[in-house]
Design a protein around this nucleic acid. Structure first.
Length: 736
DNA sequence: GCCCCTCTGATTTTT
DNA sequence: TCAGAGGGGC
């Protein structure tokens, strides 16, 4: 097999063929990063005769891992046997083989954020902490932050002068995790490092095993990930990291941008390759992106360019309210649709989820199909988590969090009193909750009786396990539990959907079983850890026929023909919390860069002069990022042909005069935008107008009271219902 | 033990 | 605005 390098440009080719020694590939947005990584792997195998299992490739997301696997397979023509994992997946896999060296059982549980918080909740109670000061959320944040920033989180907490209570809570948290034979996400990384440090023989084994290491999205690595890579690669130094410092947007999650900025210091003699040719966007879009990002200090110098010249001008729109902004976006989408664009070629990107609400309302009123990404994903649904918790408890009987979740689901009449007694007993006897339930001699008769049915069910399940196929086993377990009946009774939510989800999970289990081919592995453990690390199952499906709505963070790595970047307002984007912190502001700017570079052909930047935030009217100024784009975006009085096109849109204006673009952060000082004079199709209601409401449907206006933002209109809807609505907020469109 | 109502607080979330 | 949590009443 030969690898075709002719399709690569010069720097790409260099990145593929420099196989020995440390290599930093600075891959700008849309510069063919994945192609380089996968071709490099294929090249190592085919041209350098490296055995696939000597190659380790690490990514951040399951999606990226999957995509790379598929592409490597395509290039090499077989399932190459390359170790291709997410960081966490790799660690979970390694620990499932080696963790007994650290005194854990190989069937450890992986605690996700919910599990973590539930555990922390009990710790707050047990330590009698004031939960106003030390809330679950706060503590979980502090703990994770410590684990992300340091290999010795206790020391980190001490050095950052955390109060005594935090230190106590943290050590109890770690103690309870250990007792539950559980690791949180951060532990997966830290325990791997601990293993390597404690057992040089194990480290030596894997060092020798992984002779070529590749890391994707290197700008997003945290301290622990850096150490893992460093430990494995330090000796042979065949380490290729690919990333873009300008797209580092997870600093708040512990990603340390210094890892990529100082790669050459960490690995002296490292080669640096810059991929600056962009294959995605037009020149106009790249110009705006470059203008913005140049305001950041301390970045690796690079500038994207493209052969795609003569692109559409970028449009800036100001709405008076978020409603107008949304209406404008919908108008543009319908317009694009009339010109032959598919709905799924549009993306609406925003800084916060809260912004999706109004967009959804207006999209609905226009009957535009859309999909919002980033809601509760499949594996996070309560019914799915319930079932998984039963399985988790069977796999790891020490898993107190799983036990606590399901002990009263379905309801078994077990409340605080019974649980308190159980906890006390468990503490006394130094056993897990489940262990006490299985051996309840010391519990009061009354409590014992309450737990007995549960104990019987689980004992029967233990008995059953291994005698049937995986999914049949689970289905039988659920029958015994009476889970379906519980879903039917529990009328909180749609029974059909929830029961369907459970079925889907069972289907997924049987699929997993049939593709499970690790003779030494434990099917249940392997399934549970895969699922635990696969919480974000909502991948963007490219041909879904829907307009795509998501946060800027979620948009990373994606591309769309037309992108609307909305809420381009000071205080929203950049967020108010980032405004006065130069580092945070730079991260917001990178986020803006990411957003802009998602667009292939058309980019719309929109903002509202005022919007409802936390139930309050908030007036706002255009985002400073808009001015930073300077004349890369359309200015008032501009003469170009788009001006004519703009007239079709309801309100257009962008008033800030652009000052020369300085380097470094700037504070917006422009004048307040004047109120646009164009006809406002939203506020100008009169009696007899026919309207459509997003929820109530069609109706006729009976009466209009008052003027301006407080205007109230009375509408009689077709279904006979009459409503008084605040015109400004009601999701209304006029029917001609 | 469970349900309902009031209070509170609020970015972003690859694993 | 609105979701989630905790307190109080049944």
């Amino acid at each position: 097999m030969e690898i075709d390098l002719t399709k690569l440009n010069q720097p790409q080719r260099e990145a593929v063929t420099c196989t020995e020694g440390p290599l930093l590939v600075l891959a700008g947005a849309g510069s063919g990063k994945t192609r380089v990584l996968t071709t490099r792997i294929a090249y190592l195998i085919a041209e350098k005769s490296v055995a696939p299992y000597h190659i380790l490739a690490l990514t951040f997301t399951n999606k990226a891992a999957k995509e790379m696997k598929e592409r490597v397979q395509k290039l090499t023509g077989e399932d190459a046997g390359v170790w291709l994992f997410t960081f966490h997946g790799f660690c979970a896999r390694l620990l499932s083989m080696e963790i007994d060296a650290l005194g854990y059982d190989k069937r450890f549980s992986i605690y996700d954020e919910d599990d973590q918080q539930s555990l922390i909740g009990h710790i707050i109670k047990d330590l009698n902490l004031n939960d106003k000061v030390f809330s679950k959320r706060t503590l979980a944040g502090i703990f994770s932050d410590a684990k992300n920033h340091s290999l010795r989180p206790e020391e980190f907490l001490r050095q950052s002068y955390q109060p005594r209570q935090v230190l106590e809570a943290f050590s109890l948290y770690q103690k309870r995790l250990k007792e539950a034979n559980a690791l949180d996400f951060d532990d997966l990384l830290l325990k791997t490092i601990e293993l390597f440090e404690k057992r040089p023989d194990v480290l030596a084994k894997y060092r020798d095993h992984f002779r070529y290491i590749l890391v994707d999205e290197y700008q997003d690595t945290n301290m622990a990930q850096y150490h893992i890579v460093s430990l494995l690669a330090r000796e042979h130094r065949n380490l290729c990291v690919v990333g873009d410092d300008d797209q580092s947007i997870y600093g708040w999650r512990g990603a340390d941008i210094r890892n990529i900025l100082e790669f050459e210091k960490d690995f002296p003699g490292a080669r640096v390759v810059r991929l600056e040719q962009n294959y995605r966007s037009t020149d106009k879009i790249l110009e705006a992106a470059n203008r913005v990002i140049e305001n950041n200090r301390g970045r690796k110098d690079k500038r994207l360019w493209t052969e795609k010249t003569d692109g559409f001008p970028i449009t800036v729109y100001e709405g008076r309210t978020e409603r107008e902004e949304a209406v404008y976006i919908c108008d543009r989408i319908l317009n694009g649709r009339r010109m032959g664009s598919r709905y799924d070629s549009f993306a609406i990107l925003y800084r916060t989820h809260a912004q999706s609400r109004i967009l959804e309302m207006i999209l609905q009123s226009y009957s535009i199909p859309y999909k919002v990404y980033g809601g509760t994903s499949f594996f996070n649904r309560s019914e799915v988590k319930d079932v998984l918790s039963y399985l988790r408890l069977l796999s790891n009987p020490n898993d107190d969090v799983a036990f606590t979740r399901i002990i009263n689901v379905p309801r078994r009449g077990i409340g605080n009193v019974a649980m308190d007694e159980l906890r006390a007993e468990a503490q006394q006897r130094e056993l897990s909750l489940f262990a006490v339930v299985l051996d309840p001699q010391t519990l009061s008769l009354r409590t014992r009786a309450k737990f007995a049915p549960f104990a019987h069910i689980m004992e029967a399940a233990f008995e059953d396990y291994g005698k049937k196929t995986f999914s049949v086993f689970a289905a039988d377990l659920l029958k015994r539990i009476g889970y379906d009946a519980y879903l039917k009774e529990d009328k909180k939510e749609n029974y059909e959907v929830r029961s369907e989800n459970v079925k889907e999970l069972l289907g997924y289990m049987s699929e997993f079983e049939s593709s499970f081919d690790d003779p030494d592995g434990d099917l249940l453990q392997s399934f549970l850890s895969t699922v635990a690390l696969f919480m974000n199952a909502d991948n963007v499906d490219e041909q879904n026929g829907c307009v795509n709505l998501m946060t800027l963070h979620a948009a990373k790595g994606l591309e769309f023909d037309t992108v609307f970047l909305c809420g381009m307002e000071d205080g929203l984007f950049p967020s108010a919390q980032s405004k006065f912190d130069p580092e945070k502001l730079e991260e917001e700017r990178r986020l803006c860069y990411v957003g802009v570079t998602r667009a292939q052909e058309k980019l719309f930047l929109t903002y509202a002069g005022s919007r409802m935030l936390y139930g309050q009217f908030t007036a706002s100024q255009p985002s400073q990022f808009l001015r930073e784009m300077g004349d890369a975006i359309r200015m008032p009085g501009g003469s170009s042909r788009e001006q004519a096109a703009q007239k079709a849109a309801p309100v257009e204006s962008f008033h800030a005069q652009t000052p020369p673009v300085h380097t470094g952060p700037q504070v917006f000082m422009g004048t307040k935008p004047a109120t646009p004079k164009t006809v406002d199709k939203v506020l100008d209601w009169k009696d007899g107008d026919r309207v459509r409401h997003a929820i109530f449907g069609e109706g006729v206006i009976e009466n209009v009271e008052g003027k301006g933002p407080s205007q109230i209109i009375r509408v009689r809807f077709k279904n006979g219902v009459e409503k008084r609505l605040t015109a400004l907020y009601a999701p209304l469109t006029r029917l001609e």
